[in-house]
Design a protein around this nucleic acid. Structure first.
Length: 571
RNA sequence: GGGCCUGUAGCUCAACGGUUAGAGCAGAGCGCUCAUAACGCUUUGGUUGGGGGUUCAAAUCCCUCCGGGCCUACCA
C-alpha cells in the first residue's frame, strides 16, 4: 500500500467548463484516483476553483454581482457539476480561501528572503474609463502589420504577428470601448526564475519517464531565446491575494495582488489545509511536507498542455526557491486538446457540449467512458456525435450492458434468483480465468502508467471475453442435457459481473455500483488478486437480482437533435 | 519567423530499428438463440502523406517537400 497525492489542474471560475476541459485534467485524475483507491492505496485527490484575475472581475461585473459573491456562486455551481460527473475529490477547494492567502503570502516572503524576488517598474496601458490597467489582450486596434481591425494588443489573430499595445492603430479597451488610454508607470514583483534555471533544468532532465508533451514544453521555455525569463507575479487588481511579505507589509506594493499563476498552484497545498479545516482529514503536512511524512508520497498532477509551463517551471521554482521541504511533483500527466466536430469548443459561440449540458442529456458514465477511451494523449482528439453514438452503443450497451443482461436473465429463468449450485469449473473455465488473469494484469499495467486509452481498450477486451466464453460454453444448450454443467457456467458468469464491476468502477462508477448492487447491499468489492479465487467469490445460494438494462442506446434521432442543438451560432 | 507534436485501413487508434504493419468500429459471409435485432466466428480493406538517404533490416533514424495542430512568456 502506497500513498498517492493527486491534483487536477484547477478550473477557472468564470463559467462552466466544456468537455475538453474535463477530459484534460479532472476526469483522468479521477480515473487514476479511483483506480488507486480500488487497489487499496491511500489517496488524497484535490481540486479547486481558480478564482482570481481580470476575467473573474469582468465576469462578475457582467453578471452584476460583487466578485466575491460571483465566485462563491460559481464555485457552488462547479462543485455541483463535478459531483454530477462523479469526480471523487477528497476536497474541492477555492484559491480564494484564507488558507491560500496565508500560504501564498508566506511563499512570497520566503522567496524574497532568498533574494529570488526583484522589483520592476514598468509602463502599462491604463484605461481611466475602466478604472483599471488593461492586460494586453484587452486592448484591440488595427494591426500595423496587416491592417486587420480587431488585432489584440498581444498578438494579431489575422497575421499572427506579436504586437505591443502601443503599436496598435486606434487602440481601444475591449471592456468599455474607450479610446482614452494612457501609459502609466507601475511597480511589480518578478520571480527570478532565471536564477533557478540550472536547477529546474536538471530536475526536468531527471524526469525521463514523463510524457514528451510535458518535457518538451518545459525545455522549450527553459531554452527558448535568452532562456528562462523572470516572471511577474503581481498585478494591479482589486480581487486577489494582497501582496504581503509573509505576515509583514510590502512597502510600495500597497493595493496590489499576486498574479493568479502565482497563487493558483499554491492552492494545491492550501487545499489540503482546507480539507483538514473541513473536517475531512486531520494531517495535511504528511502529504505535503517531506520532513513530516510526505517523503513516501507519490505525487501526480494532471493538466492540459496549456498548463504545463506553470507546473514544470513556475510552481517548482516557488517550491524550490522557498528553501523549505515541500513535496515536489513526481509525475506530470499532460493532455492535448479535445476539439468539437471539426473545430474548437467555443464558449462565446456556444459551440460544443458543456459540462452541465452533458449531464442534462445523458448520465455521467456515458460521457466518462467516451471521453476517457478517446483521451487526447498523443495528439489533439475530436468529438463527433457519430463516434460518440457508435462507441457508447457498441461498448457500453452491447458489449457490457447486454452481457450483464443475458447472464442475469438466463440465470433467473433457469435457476431462480440465487447463484446456482452443482457442477464444477472445467477446462473452458480454466482457459477463461487464465486469459482474464493475464488481461487484468495488462489492464493494471496500463492504469499504473496512466495510459488512459490503452486501459480502456483492455477493459473492453475483458468485457468481450465474457461474451466469447458464453458463446463457447453455451449454457442454454448445456441446460437441456446437463443442468449441473449449465449451473457451473452461470455461476462463473455471475462472478464475472462482480469482477467486471470492480475493474470498471474507475471508468463508470455508477454502473459499477448498479452491477455490484445486483448481489445485495454488501458484496465483496476487493480488487482482484490475480488468482482463480477471484472468480469464486459469489457462492452457491448467494442471492442476486436482475438489474435494469445498464445502458440505453443512443437513437439516431437523438444524435441528430443534439448535433443541431450544440452546433453553436455562427458569427 | 522559431520551436514542439502530428500524418498508418472508409473512421478512431496500436506498433517506439527486427517474422507476413495490428485492434475496435463500419462493410461482407456464416453461426447461435441466453440477451438491449444483442453475441460469436470468418473475412474484405494499407506502396504507413510525397520524394530522397542511412542500414543486413525503416511506419520507426536522417534530409526535403506537403497537410493538420499547439506553444511563443500581460487570458487563465
Amino acid at each position: 500500500m502506497a500513498r498517492h497525492l493527486i491534483t487536477s489542474a484547477i478550473p477557472y471560475i468564470n463559467g462552466i467548463k466544456h468537455l475538453g476541459n474535463l477530459v484534460g485534467s479532472q476526469l483522468p485524475a479521477d480515473l487514476y484516483a479511483r483506480y488507486l483507491r480500488g487497489r487499496g492505496h491511500e489517496v488524497l485527490f484535490l481540486c479547486a476553483t481558480d478564482e482570481h484575475g481580470t476575467p473573474a472581475e469582468l465576469a462578475a461585473a457582467k453578471a452584476g454581482k460583487p466578485v466575491r459573491e460571483y465566485c462563491a456562486e460559481m464555485h457552488a455551481v462547479q462543485a455541483d457539476i463535478a459531483r454530477g460527473f462523479r469526480l471523487s475529490f477528497d476536497h474541492f477547494g477555492r484559491s480564494s480561501s484564507p488558507q491560500n492567502h496565508r500560504l501564498t503570502q508566506h511563499f512570497a516572503g520566503r522567496l524574497a528572503d532568498a533574494d529570488l524576488i526583484r522589483e520592476v517598474t514598468e509602463r502599462q496601458m491604463y484605461s481611466p474609463a475602466d478604472g483599471r490597467f488593461l492586460p494586453d489582450r484587452y486592448i484591440e486596434g488595427t494591426c500595423p502589420n496587416c491592417g486587420f481591425d480587431s488585432a489584440r494588443g498581444d498578438q494579431c489573430d489575422n497575421c499572427t504577428k506579436q504586437l505591443d499595445p502601443v503599436d496598435l492603430i486606434n487602440p481601444h479597451s475591449t471592456i468599455s470601448g474607450s479610446t482614452d488610454l494612457e501609459m502609466r508607470e507601475t511597480k511589480h514583483l518578478y520571480l527570478r526564475q532565471s536564477a533557478m534555471k540550472d536547477q529546474l533544468e536538471a530536475w526536468i532532465d531527471s524526469k525521463t519517464d514523463w510524457p514528451v508533451l510535458t518535457t518538451s514544453i518545459a525545455r522549450k521555455w527553459l531554452n527558448d531565446g535568452d532562456g528562462l525569463q523572470d516572471r511577474g507575479i503581481t498585478r494591479d487588481l482589486d480581487w486577489g491575494i494582497p501582496v504581503r511579505k509573509g505576515d509583514a507589509d510590502w512597502p510600495g506594493m500597497e493595493g496590489k495582488v499576486f498574479y493568479v499563476w502565482f497563487d493558483a498552484p499554491i492552492e494545491y497545498i492550501a487545499c489540503a489545509q482546507e480539507w483538514v479545516e473541513a473536517g475531512k482529514g486531520d494531517d495535511w503536512e504528511r502529504w505535503w511536507r517531506t520532513d513530516k511524512g510526505a517523503d513516501d508520497v507519490s505525487y501526480t498532477q494532471f493538466m492540459g498542455k496549456d498548463n504545463v509551463p506553470f507546473h514544470t517551471l513556475g510552481f517548482p521554482a516557488t517550491i524550490i526557491g522557498s528553501g523549505e521541504p515541500w513535496k515536489l511533483v513526481d509525475f506530470i500527466k499532460s493532455f492535448n486538446y479535445l476539439n468539437y466536430d471539426g473545430g474548437q469548443f467555443s464558449t462565446s459561440r456556444g459551440r460544443g457540449v458543456f459540462m452541465d449540458q452533458a449531464l442534462d442529456i445523458l448520465p455521467a458514465d456515458y460521457w466518462r467512458w467516451w471521453l476517457l477511451s478517446h483521451a487526447p494523449e498523443s495528439s489533439d482528439a475530436e468529438f463527433t456525435w457519430e463516434n460518440f453514438q457508435a462507441s457508447v452503443n457498441k461498448d457500453l450497451a452491447d458489449v457490457l450492458g447486454n452481457f450483464v443482461s443475458r447472464v442475469t436473465k438466463f440465470a433467473r429463468s433457469r435457476f431462480g434468483e440465487a447463484v446456482p449450485d452443482g457442477g464444477a469449473y472445467g477446462p473452458q473455465e480454466e482457459t477463461l480465468i487464465a486469459d482474464l488473469t493475464k488481461r487484468i494484469a495488462t489492464y493494471q499495467a496500463h492504469m499504473d502508467a496512466m495510459e488512459v486509452r490503452k486501459s480502456a481498450q483492455e477493459l473492453r477486451a475483458i468485457w468481450v471475453a465474457g461474451n466469447e466464453y458464453l458463446q463457447t460454453a453455451a449454457p442454454w444448450a448445456a441446460f437441456k442435457s446437463d443442468p449441473d454443467r449449465a449451473a457451473a457456467i452461470v455461476r462463473l458468469s455471475l462472478n464475472l459481473i462482480r469482477v467486471y464491476a470492480i475493474l470498471s468502477a474507475p471508468f463508470i462508477p455508477d454502473t459499477a455500483d448498479t452491477m455490484l448492487n445486483a448481489f445485495g447491499s454488501a458484496p465483496d468489492r476487493r480488487w482482484p488478486r490475480g488468482t482463480p479465487d477471484d472468480f469464486t467469490v459469489l457462492q452457491p445460494g448467494d442471492a442476486f437480482s436482475v438489474p435494469e438494462n445498464l445502458f440505453a442506446k443512443i437513437e439516431d434521432s437523438q444524435r441528430a437533435d443534439w448535433q443541431e442543438r450544440f452546433a453553436g451560432t455562427r458569427i
